[in-house]
């Protein structure tokens, strides 16, 4: 870890916090996801600042980004692009859709039909798209930040579990605290700041930070803890399905990324706990409520963090 890294991180966080008020943890989680190279799913009710956060992330990272509002009549071609006949050259030429950008903002992903959703999700996994038998690579880095309304809302198509699994982290923002809300009401900061946002990171710096994530040390004791957690999700009757190996990998990678953001070169159990809800929440089936606490939190309280 070079000397500039902590400053860079704190500068990034500060810039984000000026745009999205009173959501430090969620912002940190979002950045964690980006550094770990995973896609983000922001889930909450409309008007909670999901889109603002997504915008801010794209802006701060200094990456080229496209935003798309998903609707129920959206077709895959609208996202990916389409081959159109060019009269002059008498040939089909591929016109790239909005997906061809470094950060793709999929607003209200669950309003789109499963067909459109799956087109996006394929691109997320493969980092490439295939149209008419031709493969087009997506730009690097490639992030998808999707926002989603809770599934109880009318006119939504729930994402199947296999597709939820493609998102590294799921973050819900929640209501702001009164002080932050008052600031928001005064209109002094917040969304209005978006336009004046300067890019703290650029592509090179972002990749440098990303390359540090796998170097964060994982001790045996920590992996023991992670495995205890995973074993609990698989064995406990409170979870219909346990965490998959991909989920477990996501947990470890996110914890490393979180530890890096904390300025540490090794992972502590508290790092795992910090990211656990975001990693496991959408992967563990259903939203079982155990005595009023979300399932992920319940698991954390049941598994010994030490020993």
């Amino acid at each position: 870890m070079t000397a500039v890294t902590p400053q860079l991180i704190s500068a990034t966080l500060k810039a984000l916090n000026q745009v999205v008020l009173g959501k430090e943890t969620q912002i940190r989680l979002a950045l964690t996801g980006l550094l770990a190279g995973g896609h983000l799913l922001l889930e909450d009710l409309p008007g909670m600042g999901k889109t603002t956060l997504a915008h801010a992330l794209a802006g701060v990272c200094g990456l080229e980004y496209q935003r798309m509002q998903f609707t129920s009549d959206l077709l895959p071609a609208d996202i990916i692009g389409a081959s159109i006949f060019d009269r002059q050259s008498s040939a089909f030429t591929f016109h790239r859709g909005p997906l061809f950008s470094q950060i793709f903002l999929a607003d209200e992903l669950n309003r789109a039909s499963p067909k459109a959703q799956s087109a996006l999700l394929e691109a997320m996994e493969e980092q490439q798209v295939s149209v008419d038998g031709k493969t087009y690579a997506l730009p690097r880095p490639f992030f998808v930040i999707a926002t989603q309304n809770p599934q109880s809302q009318a006119g939504t198509f729930a994402l199947p579990e296999s597709q939820l699994d493609r998102f590294l982290l799921r973050i819900s923002l929640g209501y702001p605290d009164p002080a932050a809300e008052r600031k928001l009401l005064r209109g002094a900061e917040g969304r209005s700041q978006l336009n004046g946002l300067t890019a703290v990171l650029d592509q090179r710096r972002l990749q440098a930070l990303q390359s540090l994530v796998p170097q964060v040390k994982l001790s045996d004791a920590l992996l023991d803890y992670v495995q205890r957690l995973i074993a609990y999700t698989r064995d406990s009757d409170q979870c219909a399905t346990g965490l998959s190996p991909r989920g477990a990998q996501a947990l470890v990678r996110s914890a490393q990324s979180w530890a890096l953001l904390q300025g540490r070169s090794h992972v502590l159990p508290e790092d795992v706990q910090a990211v656990f809800t975001a990693v496991a929440g959408h992967r563990l089936s259903g939203r079982h409520e155990a005595q009023g606490t979300p399932l992920a939190r319940h698991i954390l309280s049941q598994v010994d963090a030490v020993g």
Binding site: L268, P269, E270, V272, Q273, L300, S301, Q302, V303, D304, A305, V306, G307
Partner: peptide, 24 residues
């Protein structure tokens, strides 16, 4: 040693919850 540490603190009324990370 950590168990002894926890025991020593428990005597003073502070017990570690099962899932609590050492740092917390």
């Amino acid at each position: 040693i950590y168990q002894r540490f926890c025991k020593a603190l428990a005597k003073q009324g502070i017990t570690r919850e099962h899932g609590q990370a050492p740092g917390d």
